[in-house]
């Protein structure tokens, strides 16, 4: 597939550059809110909304924002949409709002969003950036949904809150430890499937703003 096409901008986030399972970004929400499938979808869609809107706005402003202060500008744009999402969920889906809790505000520091702003939206046109944001967001949602379904089925024997009457459940899966365990297994399977070696570490190697990070240029980091 042509790497420059609009279609590729959309599709790559779903599969080959899946933000949380392949690029290992945004691990905190991936681990924290996925105790239920519905939480995973809710968090994923909230992030998708913020990503889509911030990518569009940042792409539109990319010629106006001065290079030296671009990161603070991006953060302000992103946080504005996070606050907006917070209000919308509080008004229309209060149950989900209270389950996601603090992680809704923390979308603002999710490195996927700042990463896409820096690596893609600040360099590409509006349509392409919107497709990129949508693709990345939906890829993130799919990963969270997979994690949430697995943990809910194995840990509480239910799916979307409906009891499945399983003969055996393992409560450990809905506990914090189960989150780390499930994500580890899923990443191993994904990398087996795409026939690549899993990265040796999380951090600078996976971080999209690494090229601009003063901390990474020094060589010895993380």
């Amino acid at each position: 597939m042509d790497r420059k096409s609009n279609l590729y901008a959309f599709v790559k986030g779903l599969a080959v550059e899946n933000p949380s399972l392949v690029m290992l970004l945004g691990m905190c929400p991936t681990l924290a809110v996925t105790t239920m499938a519905s939480n995973g979808i809710g968090m994923g869609l909230a992030t998708t909304f913020v990503l889509l809107c911030s990518n569009i706005v940042i792409s539109a402003l990319r010629k106006v924002i001065p290079g030296t202060v671009r990161l603070p500008c991006f953060i302000v744009v992103i946080t504005t949409f996070v606050t907006l999402t917070d209000f919308i969920l509080k008004a229309y889906i209060p149950a989900l709002h209270s389950r996601l809790g603090i992680f809704l505000s923390l979308i603002a520091v999710n490195c996927i969003i700042l990463g896409r702003a820096e690596a893609f939206a600040s360099k590409n046109g509006i349509v392409k950036s919107a497709l990129d944001g949508l693709g990345m967001g939906l890829g993130f949602t799919a990963a969270l949904f997979t994690m949430g379904s697995l943990r809910e089925i194995l840990g509480s024997g239910a799916f979307f809150g409906i009891d499945l009457h399983l003969p055996l459940v393992f409560p450990i899966f809905v506990m914090p430890a189960g989150g780390f365990f499930t994500l580890g297994i899923i990443i191993a399977i994904v990398y087996k499937f795409i026939k690549r070696k899993p990265p040796a570490k999380v951090g600078c190697a996976a971080c999209p703003i690494a090229s601009d990070c003063v901390n990474c240029k020094g060589g010895e980091t993380a």
Partner: peptide, 22 residues
């Protein structure tokens, strides 16, 4: 195992450390 080298094994180790905090 080769498939688990790197991040997967790190995450599973984190799971075990997390159990201790329970």
């Amino acid at each position: 195992p080769k498939t688990f080298k790197g991040v997967p094994s790190t995450l599973i180790a984190a799971a075990i450390v997390s159990v201790s905090f329970m």
